[in-house]
C-alpha cells in the first residue's frame, strides 16, 4: 500500500498525517486525533452515528477513506460549540428539549441538525424528519429530537 500524506483541518485545526489508503476517516478521527465523539455503531452507513461535516456537508465517516478527504475542512461534534465552550443553539436546544437519552446518537443528530439549519433555517417538521431519517436513535423515538431541531427553526 502506498502510504500518503494528507492535510485537512478538523474543527479549525490543521493536521498533517500519514495514513494508509485503507484507513477510514472514523478511525483516524477517533484513534489518531483522539476525537471520540464520532461513533461507530454499524460501519455500513446505516445508523449515522459516525456523521461528520466535510466542507459543511454531512458525511458518513465509517465509509469515508481518510485519503479521500485530503484538503477538506472537517467538523466533528467536538467542534460544534465555540472554542470558549459556548454552546451552539442546536446544542442548547437538545438540552432544553431533553433530546438526549443515552447520548450515543447525539453527536450525529446534532451535526445533522446543524447542517440542516445552515442550509435551511426555516425547515418544516417534514424536512427535519427527512434530514435525520438516516440517523438511528433507539432511545427517544425521535420525537424530542425533532422538537429540539424544530425549536431552532425560524417560523
Amino acid at each position: 500500500m502506498n502510504k500518503r500524506k494528507v492535510t485537512f483541518t478538523v474543527n479549525g485545526e490543521r493536521h498533517e498525517l500519514v495514513v494508509e489508503p485503507n484507513e477510514l476517516l472514523l478511525n483516524v478521527l477517533r484513534e489518531k486525533l483522539g476525537l471520540t465523539g464520532t461513533k461507530y455503531a454499524c460501519g455500513k452507513g446505516q445508523c449515522g452515528a459516525c456523521t461528520v461535516l466535510v466542507n459543511g456537508e454531512s458525511f458518513l465517516s465509517c465509509l469515508t477513506l481518510a485519503v479521500a478527504v485530503d484538503g477538506a475542512e472537517i467538523r466533528t461534534i467536538e467542534g460544534v460549540a465555540e472554542p470558549d465552550g459556548t454552546l451552539d443553539p442546536i446544542q442548547e436546544a437538545f438540552l432544553d428539549s431533553s433530546a438526549i437519552q443515552c447520548g450515543f446518537c447525539t453527536p450525529g443528530m446534532v451535526l445533522m441538525g446543524r447542517e440542516l439549519l445552515n442550509r435551511n433555517p426555516r425547515a418544516t417538521e417534514e424536512e427535519i424528519r427527512e434530514q435525520i431519517k438516516g440517523n438511528l436513535c433507539r432511545c427517544t423515538g425521535y420525537f424530542s429530537i425533532v422538537r429540539a431541531i424544530k425549536s431552532c427553526c425560524e417560523k
Binding site: N2, N22, L24, C62, A68
Partner: peptide, 13 residues
C-alpha cells in the same frame, strides 16, 4: 469486521 477496512490497496486521485 465492519469497524475497519481489512483490504490493502493502492490509491490514486
Amino acid at each position: 469486521n465492519t469497524r475497519i477496512l481489512t483490504q490493502e490497496f493502492d490509491y490514486f486521485a
